[in-house]
Simulated scan of single mutants.
Amino acid sequence: MLKLIQNEWMKLWSKKGTWVMVILIAAMIVGLSGLLRLLNELNDYSSWTESLQQELVQVEEELASPDVTEEKKAELLQRQEEIGYEIESTMEMSKPKSSEEVILETSGMMSLVMLFMIIVAAGIVASEFSQGTIKMLLSRPVKRWKILTSKYVTVLLFGLTLTAITYVASVVSAYIFYPTAEGNSVLLYGSEIAVTAVFGKSIYLVLLAFVYVAVMSTLAFMIGSVFRSTALSIGISLFLYFTGSMIVMFLERFEFAKFILFAHDLAQYETGFKMLESNTMPFSIAVLLAYVVVLLVVSYTTFMKRDITA
């Protein structure tokens, strides 16, 4: 089995497309980090803050007027509170993020890993049929399930490799473009995280995101095992990837929506932005495991029974 995995790993890295993916994901993360820092510096928050402060002065003058009615006073007090919040938010936005905050947000970059993993997973089996190498592959004295397992393990290993590259690139770019945090803690979605715990927390978030990425890759792997066309397999997989969240949003009013695969990204339970309020992490883990089992059963059944002479 190890030799089969090694063989698949070498085949994967012998393709120029694999190296392009690796270079692209590193360049995109570093480039995006630098671009966001540049845009933050170019935005003129001072003029907007000055405008809000002028409006606040006017509101306070109106409140001080002896002729203001109770109804008008209530409106002015509400507007005063809103302006204060807007000024505070604008001043917070004008501050550059710390490198620690950027590192904590690395899990958001896992969508790039998912995109490339889906392409690899959907094509790793289908390409054997498209290129006509499947007969030569299955003519070897090796059981089919071992061949398919080696391909699936290779996909997961490639995903872990891309995840590691993503994390390292994010950390490096964070320290290049952003200042270190002031104080002993930083904010993550409204929660305070100790600076000393930044790496542990960020790795935990990335691993949670990788679980969902791995399951989506398993879906792409199944589609690639069922369809012989590489283009069709990748096309269907990418379509589901880009429309998954919209499908959940469209069907969220129905009870069965909580069983849809695309509603179970585990990272959502740490960020607080849940797709469906009724879902919990244990439930999502159970649903994801069920999907993996079903998808792999379909993949292996199809591959084992397929007539390669057709």
Rank of each mutant, 00 (worst) to 15 (best):
E55K: 14
L24A: 13
T106W: 00
V186Y: 11
T302H: 04
K73S: 12
M110W: 03
A164R: 14
I223W: 07
A286I: 02
S245M: 10
T271N: 14
F254T: 04
S173C: 08
W145K: 07
S299C: 01
S127W: 01
S89I: 03
G272E: 14
E88H: 13
T280Y: 09
Q78M: 09
A121D: 03
S127N: 13
G183T: 08
A267G: 06
F242K: 13
F158N: 08
E192G: 12
E41I: 04
S150F: 05
Q268K: 14
S170W: 00
V171M: 14
S245R: 14
I247L: 04
T106V: 02
I176A: 06
L157R: 03
S229H: 02
P96K: 11
K97P: 09
F283K: 10
V22Y: 01
S111P: 04
M222C: 14
L266M: 07
L157A: 04
K15W: 01
A286H: 05
Y269S: 11
L219Y: 12
S107G: 04
A197S: 11
K135C: 03
V68Q: 05
I134Q: 06
L219I: 12
V298C: 04
F158E: 04
R79P: 00
L12F: 00
I87Q: 10
Y152Q: 01
K143T: 14
P282F: 10
I124P: 04
L207R: 04
A197K: 12
G244A: 06
M275S: 15
M114C: 09
G34P: 03
M110V: 02
V248R: 15
V142P: 06
E192N: 13
E277N: 11
T243D: 09
V125C: 08
I118H: 11
K11T: 02
T133H: 01
S233R: 07
V172K: 02
W13I: 03
E70T: 08
S98P: 07
S130R: 05
A290V: 12
M114E: 01
L289H: 03
T166W: 02
A169C: 13
V30I: 12
F250K: 08
E88S: 12
W19G: 01
V20M: 11
V297F: 11
T90E: 11
G123T: 11
A121K: 03
L148M: 08
V226M: 13
V172C: 06
L276Y: 02
L63D: 13
S94F: 03
S233Q: 05
K16T: 05
T302Y: 06
A122T: 01
Y269H: 15
V198G: 06
T180P: 11
V171L: 12
R144K: 15
E277A: 15
V215H: 04
S217V: 00
W19R: 11
A169I: 05
G17Q: 13
K73F: 06
R253L: 09
S127V: 00
V206N: 01
A174K: 04
S94N: 09
M28F: 12
F283V: 04
I87A: 06
T149L: 11
